[in-house]
């Protein structure tokens, strides 16, 4: 361990210990440790195929783990039921399905965790309106999502995650395919959430406009944790710390971690 635990505040909200996972027969995670404390903003970085999206998807239960433990709010993921505390923004280029749906309809589906049997009350409808205002999409509430730009889609997906008023926000590449205006809106929204005490785990390709918010960066490579500590301050792939920061979490017998620039 490298002494980065000092940055973890309070009880862990997310805790992965020696997690391995496979897609098909290919090992994608080879024993990663990841802890996110309450109120922390952690960025999960790494090249394509490094396993960062898979790591997030083991947390939400979309990808089964082959060994190791995943805990949410101190509860093993399998027995975790309190999903209203978790907001999730999947990696999507579009929010549209096979049938037209309005912005309000999409965002409303994020509120189901807070309702009983899916019955909406006035507070739920107000929460939907509030979430749309947060991301600056209130004026598009009745529009079909197919009429939105890539950045606006992403704002809708974030509103859908925020509408349940979660304590933990998990976002997979929220800035991918997002225009500059929307990037600013998203960064501002996230800043408000963090200020209000929300814990955030972000999968990012590069730190970009979110850099000032991030407390800690975890860099994955070939399914292993390469770096866990303060975020690299320079922007861009080549500035990521891959030089001398070996983090030997891989189980014995796994491939040795090569150091060097992230490929």
């Amino acid at each position: 361990m490298t002494g980065t635990e000092g940055t973890i505040m309070g009880e862990p909200v997310i805790s992965l210990r020696q997690v391995t996972a496979e897609l098909g027969a290919r090992p994608v995670l080879r024993g990663i440790d990841l802890t996110v404390g309450r109120g922390e903003v952690v960025a999960l970085l790494g090249a394509n195929g490094s396993g960062k999206s898979t790591a997030v998807r083991t947390i939400i239960g979309q990808v089964p783990v082959t060994s190791g433990t995943v805990e949410l709010f101190g509860t093993p993921r399998r027995s975790f039921r309190d999903w209203a505390r978790v907001g999730y923004v999947p990696q999507r280029t579009t929010a549209a399905g096979g049938v037209p749906a309005t912005v309000t309809e999409i965002v409303s589906s994020g509120r189901l965790a807070r309702t009983r049997f899916g019955v909406f009350r006035r507070a739920d409808r107000e929460a939907v309106r509030g979430a749309l205002e947060l991301v600056g999409m209130a004026d598009r509430a009745k529009d079909s999502v197919t009429a939105l730009s890539g950045g606006q889609h992403q704002r809708v997906l974030i509103a859908r995650a925020l509408v349940a008023e979660p304590e933990l926000l998990i976002m997979d590449e929220p800035m991918a395919g997002v225009d500059l205006a929307s990037q600013e809106v998203l960064a501002r929204t996230l800043e408000q959430q963090v200020a209000a005490g929300t814990t955030v785990l972000l999968v990012l390709h590069e730190l970009g406009p979110l850099e000032p918010l991030i407390d800690r960066a975890v860099v994955l490579r070939d399914g292993c944790v390469l770096h866990d500590g303060p975020p690299p301050r320079a922007v861009g792939q080549h500035a990521l710390p891959g030089h001398d920061h070996v983090h030997p979490h891989a189980p014995t017998g796994a491939e040795p971690i090569r150091t060097g620039l992230l490929s």
């Binding site: 999903w83 209203a84 999947p90 929010a95 309809e105 189901l112 309702t115 899916g118 909406f120």
Partner: peptide
Amino acid sequence: GLRRQLFAVSQDEEFARVTGL
């Protein structure tokens, strides 16, 4: 009766799982 739940699952299965459906 289950239109909101079925809508959520049919729209985005992965997200629906995280809402606890």
